[in-house]
Write a protein that binds this DNA or RNA. Structure first.
Lengths: 256, 256
DNA sequence: CAGTGGTCTAGACCACCAA
DNA sequence: TGGTGGTCTAGACCACTGC
């Protein structure tokens, strides 16, 4: 057990030879809070209970809760606001929109994107799409194909695949009529919150179809960006394949 | 002053109307440690003084030093090793090599890179290179052009510009004979430690020269990666323009 | 075994916010 | 004014490393 006089009644992981498996208290607290987030006890944008309340609830000191929340904040799952409280992170906050979009204009401020849905239909997952989304092939998926234009210049063409079950009822009309980031729409309409993503980038030549939609000649070099976005617990919830024009934009990345 | 009975004799920033400028103690400690790192009091790979020692030196509690070091560790400036101490981060650690290279093979493990220096000469900075490196145009710079090949396939062609003053005495021979990451070489030979970097990525068509060096046809789509690498204090110390073949590799990025 | 970083607690006070 | 997160301290004990 841990070092306090009133030992918290949390699990002390049993050590085995292979996995010593010592898990600090604050990690266990983090997991518990994560489960509450996952289970929807507090929804995106909500205030969470204060550190004092959580400390009382979990029978640990405030400092331990604090460290757990620190990590959740570092993972962008939660946002702290001094004097107000801790809030569940959301993709619908103003001025932090398009958190996962790394494409930036070479000069000047970004215009608002003009969005056009090219296609939206339900289909069966191909073997590859199924594998990347953690589905069986032939499981239902939704495919959304859209174009984003900036200042009238079509710049991004992307195919978005979503698992059919959690996104049951997604229609082109709802998508088209929605303003704001797609991930905010997913939060409010389907309760699906994207937490992190991985991207693989290649340089590719524009196909005839892509060239037509993006207004370039076939063969024009484009950035091919494959993104897998995950919800809580590293469950993949979206596969997105984008083609980016980079004549006026670039993909920005910070390394450290 | 701060809340302890023995107030630490550190600066309490004066608040002005425009900038309230309250700076927590641990931030001041972080800055002081940063200055020691910058000044070379401890060199890459060295053990730093223990938290207790630093706490005594700065007249604060261990917890405050701890929080300062936590941030330095989060910035990858320092590495903690339980039971051993805190070490100044370095690019020459085995198995963490090429920390800033995001190119990965599509399948399998990466081979060791075969490196060929195509060119290495001193010149005067063009206006653009000077601007990006924070130099005046016509200031001396070193240009290194090299090719990296994996499993015999030339994959990366890059131009590296370095400010001439700190890199005085850099020769093609020294570069060629060195094994290991270039940034480790910079640390040991010139005392220059790259701390973070920014990259801007575009898709470009291979020029005739690039095509010849990379073994592709002219016009072949390549990833154009412009990197600016910084030392301590956000001072730019390297401009690197790379062309990456992405037929067998991809640029990997994690978003959160 | 001693020394290091890592965890946990308890209590105090500060900065910020809203009512 | 009271509540929230943010800072700081002091002290205890744990886990890991190396002598």
């Amino acid at each position: 057990m841990n070092q306090n006089t009133q030992p918290p009644d949390l699990v002390e992981p049993v050590g085995t030879a292979a996995t010593p498996a010592f898990s600090p208290l604050y990690q266990q607290i983090k997991t518990l809070i994560l489960q509450s987030l996952q289970g929807g006890e507090w929804k995106p944008g909500d205030v969470m209970p204060s550190e004092q309340d959580l400390a009382a609830r979990f029978r640990v000191s405030q400092g331990t809760v604090r460290k757990a929340i620190d990590e959740l904040a570092a993972d962008n799952l939660v946002v702290r606001r001094q004097g107000k409280g801790t809030f569940v992170a959301t993709h619908s906050e103003r001025h932090i929109q398009y958190r996962f979009l790394r494409l930036q204009p070479d000069a000047g401020q970004e215009d608002r994107a003009e969005r056009t849905i090219v296609e939206c239909r339900r289909m069966r997952a191909t073997a590859e799409v199924g594998r990347l989304l953690g589905l069986r092939s032939a499981d239902p998926v939704v495919l959304v194909k859209r174009v984003l234009a900036f200042a009238g210049v079509p710049t991004i063409l992307e195919d978005v695949w979503l698992p059919g079950i959690p996104f049951k009822g997604l229609t082109q009309e709802a998508l088209s009529s929605d303003q704001g980031p797609m991930y905010a729409f997913f939060e409010s309409e389907f309760g699906v919150r994207m937490v992190r993503a991985e991207e693989k980038i290649k340089a590719v030549a524009a196909s005839a179809e892509a060239a037509a939609l993006l207004g370039v000649e076939p063969g024009h070099p484009l950035l091919g960006v494959e993104r897998i976005a995950y919800t809580y617990n590293d469950v993949p919830m979206e596969l997105r394949r984008g083609l980016y024009r980079t004549d006026m934009h670039h993909y920005k990345n910070e390394l450290s």
